[in-house]
Design a protein around this nucleic acid. Structure first.
Lengths: 151, 151
DNA sequence: ATTTAATAAATTGAATACAATTAAATTGTA
DNA sequence: TACAATTTAATTGTATTCAATTTATTAAAT
């Protein structure tokens, strides 16, 4: 038997189930977020801002692992929706400060049931959930300043 | 203390680390696949075909959790690259059969070192890797015919 | 003080994802 | 047989992602 190609089998991939389940769960959010006028990416931006308001784009990107190429157009849309404001930092005009509007702050109230709603769709024991959480964070931490990626 | 909004904290999200680490690892593949003329999505299509050649688009989509909207343009590109052929099934012309060309088959040889190359970037014990694998497959299995999603 | 280097955001272009619709082929049924 | 329902790909339109480039601003060095 030739084991030379074992690593190429889908069932032996780590990335594939990661990629597939990520998309699966993001898709789960779609109809739940739609009434709030949010997409999944907009939602995690709002999550970050609800925890820390008045933050620079760079810092926001550091938290969410997203760069200005993704965030700039996204934040402009959130601004048009009246959920955030974007203004240059007066002390250093290279930076931009993102702030929640009152409407953006109030949306938190509407959003607070979403985690439970999504959670009920993921049929997994609390123990497994916690373990999955731990393992994913190992990946994120390992690659935060990876020698493999130039992040 | 008000715990009403605990579920909205990023650190309590399951989806966020799933989403972030998936993107992180897909990005890891970029420079590794580039010399082969493949993107990550093209790569998993090739992985599936190396395991089962001459397969319908629908069946391929079932394996990879992708629909014709994603696969049709992707397969056309792989066809232009000379890695696959697309032909209507003569018995049922609604279906299309995807076959590897000789060149597509030979690419497997070039690709066989990729899993080890990526693996070396993911600093995780064999035990943790296996556990992560198991947990991700729980999510995929649970939602394969979910009551929450209309897949 | 000038010039150079570094940093942050915005822009551009390529490649997905995916919902929704359309078109073609097949199946089931009256 | 006709016709409605179903199935499969393809198409369309919207929303990301991300690498690479550009522009503006600030910091560092001469």
């Amino acid at each position: 038997m030739n084991y030379e190609y074992e690593g190429l089998k889908l069932k032996n991939q780590l990335c594939f189930p990661l990629y597939a389940s990520s998309r699966l769960i993001v898709r789960l959010y779609g109809p739940v977020l739609e009434p709030l006028g949010l997409t999944y990416t907009k939602y995690i931006v709002m999550l970050a801002l609800w925890e820390k308001d008045n933050i620079g784009l760079k810092e926001l990107g550091g938290i969410l692992f997203l760069d200005s190429g993704t965030l700039t157009p996204l934040l402009k849309k959130l601004e048009i929706q009246g959920l955030v404001t974007r203004e240059r930092n007066l002390e250093d005009e290279r930076n931009i400060n993102i702030k929640l509007t009152d409407r953006g702050k109030r949306l938190k109230e509407t959003a607070k049931d979403i985690p439970a709603k999504i959670g009920s769709c993921i049929n997994m024991s609390a123990r497994d959930l916690k373990e999955l959480h731990r393992l994913l964070h190992i990946i994120l931490e390992n690659n935060k300043e990876s020698q493999c990626l130039g992040l």
